[in-house]
Design a protein around this nucleic acid. Structure first.
Lengths: 104, 104
DNA sequence: AAGATGGTTCGACTATTTTCGAACAACTCG
DNA sequence: CGAGTTGTTCGAAAATAGTCGAACCATCTT
């Protein structure tokens, strides 16, 4: 058996629109995405969302499994970034306009 | 008491992005939206989706309550149309790009 | 008025999501 | 090594969403 703790992030071609939209349909996850969009890369711990770590981790998992976010270990922490290129290639304009709309 | 069977559709200012995205995150509802987008106006009965009427009705309700779709009685049937103007005013480009993405 | 047609509502059931604490794993630093 | 930090995984419980049949409502036709 391999990769017990590896999160399965879809490759570009596997990213599905319904899953992306579902991932973005949660206010907490939308906040996460907006913050990443503003900052470029954000560690999981950088969100002062009043919520247990496990719950936050769940939301990151949904974002990763949907293909919206990818993560990369940087020493002790996980840096999260948007998969803008993949999303733009697959669903042009979708993430962009949603982020713009989310910023009011 | 009023409007027992009136569906509560949000006014423009009340349309919420998470609810819109949730409405569009279901494949059946996405199909409905795509068909309406192509045809302009579609009666509920015009969907040859293999599914009981009550289930289809449920999906239309979600679409209406989220503000994505509005309906108008035309004699015996209900004609459904997208609230493109309201959505464009509130979340510019979002519905458009999602529909384009949904059409592959 | 009675039938036929097009949709909605209700209630029950199932399935999926969300939430959370506790335990665990990976890494850093002293 | 041992302690502190960061984040994940594992159950299990609670909330939300989807599905469906039966009954119902509205409208048109006869």
């Amino acid at each position: 058996m391999v990769c017990k703790t590896e999160v399965r992030q879809p490759v570009r071609e596997e990213i599905s629109l319904p899953k992306v939209l579902h991932a973005l349909s949660d206010p907490v996850r939308m906040e996460i995405v907006l913050k990443i969009a503003r900052a470029g890369e954000v560690a999981c711990g950088a969100f002062d969302i009043p919520m247990p770590k496990s719950t936050l981790s769940h939301h990151f998992r949904v974002l990763r499994e949907s293909g919206v976010v990818a993560s990369r270990r940087e020493g002790n922490e996980l840096m999260n970034f948007l998969r803008s290129d993949d999303l733009e290639a697959r669903f042009p304009g979708v993430l962009e306009t949603i982020i713009a709309a989310g910023n009011r």
